[in-house]
Design a protein around this nucleic acid. Structure first.
Lengths: 114, 114
DNA sequence: ATCATAATTCGACATATTTCGAAATATAGA
DNA sequence: TCTATATTTCGAAATATGTCGAATTATGAT
């Protein structure tokens, strides 16, 4: 159904990326807001610049950039330059895929229904 | 509904624990199998000993023990000694909680439905 | 009590990560 | 072209992690 299919090593890379409090905070901000390709696209685009994502995190710009790069390398976020700024967002399908990793297998659900 | 409520730092600890390929493989084995407090309890208990969890991972017992401890400390797995062996398992509620972290917020889902 | 098996603790070492500041790059606007 | 702003790259330092082997602890069996 989706074009996301990861092996254990790739998934570990993703979770490792989420395993840093700063990166997780950034990721969570992106999850909590809207995503491109959706109705709220134009409303929120300016809120997703690299600079904004670092607000309140108290880290150097170079550190922020490094973390964003890690999230991007792990395949968790998308980035695109738009003029002077770089915009970041999450693809909803990616989120679905991540969540499904924690789903109890179908047949176990069957057997476990008491 | 559930008694799991984690802040960003605690969640980052969880994802960090899952961010190692060996630990993720171990965790995945536990997810893919049944859990205590369920019908399949007695069938599978012997499959969850520490020793079995390390099968095929090609790591020293001390390393395996270390990884299990990390998963346990992060709150991802449960451990209980049963005779000579130590059994490991995952609480289904924990899994639900982890998965829900990646759920697109309700009102965003509304707005994004095109 | 002794032995064998399962698992953990400890200490050590190599490697990886986080973080920063300084310098470099990209781009819009005067 | 020059300037200001946004972001990235680079190099260095401190800290954390993954791994092992040796020693230790826990438990059941002889």
């Amino acid at each position: 159904m989706s074009n996301y299919d990861f092996n254990i090593r790739e998934r570990a890379e993703m979770f490792k990326a989420l395993g840093n409090p700063h990166r997780l905070a950034i990721f969570h901000r992106l999850v909590a807001c809207c995503m491109p390709g959706t109705l709220c696209d134009t409303d929120c685009v300016e809120r997703f610049t690299v600079g904004r994502l670092g607000d309140g995190l108290d880290i150097a710009p170079s550190t922020l950039s490094h973390h964003l790069k890690e999230l991007n390398r792990a395949g968790l976020i998308e980035m695109r330059r738009n003029g002077k700024m770089v915009e970041c967002w999450i693809e909803p399908d990616m989120l679905d895929n991540l969540g499904s990793f924690f789903a109890i297998p179908r047949d176990e659900l069957m057997r476990n229904t008491k």
